[in-house]
Design a protein around this nucleic acid. Structure first.
Lengths: 117, 117
DNA sequence: TGAACATATGAATATATATTCATATTATAG
DNA sequence: CTATAATATGAATATATATTCATATGTTCA
């Protein structure tokens, strides 16, 4: 070998091989990490929580979180790209709302973990 | 006011106030983002997926993922701090395993989202 | 048409974080 | 006790990303 990145011996080769077989495809794991990355930011978490109550326009979200319109808009783009929010335009105003049914359940599972013990 | 971070007008003050009331505490939202941040990295996702099958030692995980022992150890520390993995020592070898019952469900919800449509 | 407003976005900056490298710690075997 | 192996960890580096700033785009209304 020689070009192994791993700098230690395989202690349990059978285990490693068995686990390797059960691992999902690299790409799927990458996408999954990318998906959770979206939830890994306080601002985005707050936006999502707000939208759990009702749809809101960009200004309202900025007011609610006391943050700049620009930063909210940037984060809404991230949420949009992750297909977590959708929007509708009404004149000058753009209303954002949630576009995923799993969010609440994912949040609840997360809350279960952090409030546990 | 004047010291408002938000640079736009509140268009729907009633909505903002209503949503504000429903928002969880700042600290909880921060903790939740911190929790999901742990899942937002491919290496950690892979480690967790591996441990879903069975407990593994550091070397085995490094071999499995073809990464250095050090980086795996660093990431295991993150997972440990997030109370997502636990470990037991057997001589020189340290075995890691999952320490949370919600992980599988959270992953499944995430997979539902990314494989949808 | 043009002024005003809501939103979007590119670039710059600041900050967070993943990996590497070198080395420390802990345990076993001889 | 010493050499070796498995793991842990601090510091440095490289990379990702959140926010800001300036400005562009799109829409309404006078």
């Amino acid at each position: 070998m020689g070009t192994e990145k791993c700098d230690c011996n395989i202690i349990h080769e059978d285990v490693v091989n068995r686990v390797k077989k059960g691992m999902p495809k690299e790409e799927l794991l990458y996408d999954l990490a990318d998906f959770f990355k979206v939830f890994g930011d306080t601002t985005r978490i707050k936006i999502i929580y707000a939208l759990l109550t009702c749809e809101m326009c960009v200004c309202d979200i900025a007011s609610l979180l006391n943050m700049s319109q620009s930063s909210i808009s940037h984060q809404l783009r991230v949420l949009k790209q992750a297909r977590l929010v959708k929007f509708r335009r009404d004149g000058k105003v753009v209303y954002y709302s949630l576009d995923d049914g799993h969010i609440k359940q994912i949040f609840d599972q997360g809350l279960l973990h952090i409030t546990e013990k």
